[in-house]
Amino acid sequence: MSKLRFGVTDQMMEKYSDEIFFLGLNFQSRRGDPVRLRDQAEIEKQREGTGLTDTQIADKLDLTMEQVHYIRIVLEHKRFDNTNYAKLYKLGSGKRYRIEREGAD
């Protein structure tokens, strides 16, 4: 019901899911050190990679902020892998995570 209130359809969810998920703060890329070096041109150039707000994503995809917000929040919950946290229970006190041990325990 609520997604219809924002005009979010299943087709829209399917079409924009990955793009919205990646354009938000969920993935962040930085090249060089532009904020520290006060390189405003480079900051602008990298803005998309460092993560956009829902309003910025909406402008880019020609959606409303509410539509982007709804889709992003649903995805962030649905894609959350609840099993990873348990990895912490075996770490510390000299024991570090090793990818080669993954699945061996």
Partner: peptide, 23 residues
Amino acid sequence: QSAMDYDMAKCAEMTQQYEVVPQ
């Protein structure tokens, strides 16, 4: 540093457990 790439969504799985409650 020439490049930094961060999968914050993965990091959140280790740090923001409260997000899993609706799931």
